[in-house]
């Protein structure tokens, strides 16, 4: 079963994404900030990371940088935010993101993307 980590401080967003992904057969874990996410990733790497940019304590960029710098995870990471500016995207690539989704996320797009990035079915 493919494992996905949702990193977002907004509990509503986590629940929303979790419901979609679990219904499609993925196993989903949640983290409310970068620190918690890093701890979880250290315990057992995930197949995919969905990371919100804007979080307290440790934002999505810092989390990704650490994830990549320490080579903890080789799996793709999708940055999720409401900004779609070129600047924001560049920052995401520099931090180690592999894709960039803007909110609000549509369930079909999310599932499609997750399927491609995890290399096939759940």
């Amino acid at each position: 079963m493919k494992r996905i980590l949702i990193v977002d401080d907004a509990a509503t967003v986590r629940l929303f994404n979790r419901q979609i992904l679990e219904a499609a057969g993925y196993r989903v874990d949640e983290a409310v900030n970068g620190i918690e996410a890093l701890e979880k990733a250290l315990q057992a790497p995930y197949d995919l990371y969905l990371v919100d940019v804007n979080m307290p304590m440790q934002d999505g960029f810092s989390f990704l940088r650490q994830l990549r710098a320490q080579a903890i995870a080789q799996a793709p990471a999708v940055m999720i935010t409401t900004e779609a500016g070129e600047q924001d995207r560049r920052q995401a690539w520099a931090a180690g993101a592999n894709y960039y989704l803007t909110k609000p996320i549509k369930p079909d797009v999310l599932l499609h993307l997750v399927r491609l990035l995890t290399g096939g079915a759940a």
Binding site: R68, A69, A75, A77, Y99, R115, L116, L117, G120
Partner: peptide, 18 residues
């Protein structure tokens, strides 16, 4: 290969495979 390089390669592999 940096951590990010590896992640990109993984991503490419998966998408191409799909």
């Amino acid at each position: 290969p940096s951590g990010q390089h590896v992640a990109i390669v993984t991503t490419l592999e998966r998408v191409l495979a799909s």
